[in-house]
Design a protein around this nucleic acid. Sequence first.
DNA 1: CAGCATCCCAAGAGATACTG
DNA 2: CAGTATCTCTTGGGATGCTG
Lengths: 131, 131
Amino acid sequence: MSQGNRCVSIQADQARACTVREALDRVGGKWSIGILIAASQGPIRFTELERQVEGISRRMLTLTLRNLERDGLLHRQVHPTVPPRVEYTATPMAQELYESLVALTRWAERHREGISAARAAYDREHGAPVG
Amino acid sequence: MSQGNRCVSIQADQARACTVREALDRVGGKWSIGILIAASQGPIRFTELERQVEGISRRMLTLTLRNLERDGLLHRQVHPTVPPRVEYTATPMAQELYESLVALTRWAERHREGISAARAAYDREHGAPVG
DNA sequence: CAGCATCCCAAGAGATACTG
DNA sequence: CAGTATCTCTTGGGATGCTG
């Protein structure tokens, strides 16, 4: 996942935009949020994540876990048993992140209808999305 | 930009995740935020956006504008003069969205250092990103 | 000026077989 | 069990020439 946004030498209001993107880049992937939330309830194993986060492939689960771990949002605990047992836990930083996302959740709930109305209107005026 | 997340028949905590993604999908693109913020200051023309949102291509500007308009986040006002004059303005819904993003901004600022420290540590333990 | 059309490339993501 | 390796396909995005 990309992290090439340096935020240098840009206008004042675009700098704010850039700070927001910093946060979004950590959570923008298709699966990050789902994993983070599942791991917020307490330690959770790889296979359990695979079940709880619906539709995720093994590959994307691994990749997303690695990125979240690298960013310090997940802690990875390996138990050297056989068969192996690896547990993931959301760090305090990730918990805080989720709380910040609540505002966004509420926005989405408040405007869910408004948005689909806007879309319907747009698609009526212009050509429908498919057709 | 994708909108294939239907949020049906999933576990309770993953439903929350899905609501968050609803909001993120509207703002997840590389350019949405920059455009939204620029258009929050008042009506702004196509070419001005092209200048203020640094690095954006003509194509992506057009595409992102269309999506934001369709979602009801931007209002598009055409003045039928010659040469043409088109102005974009953030809707109240978009203004609210930005306010919700403030929490996220603050999170990013608070943890900017923590994150890059985590990355440095990770890259030290495992192989460096390029190496 | 605003913005579509076209071409091209890279990153994101799905499926799945294999392994310590 | 918890991944890695590989292959493929789709999507996002850059560059740019053309036009009402």
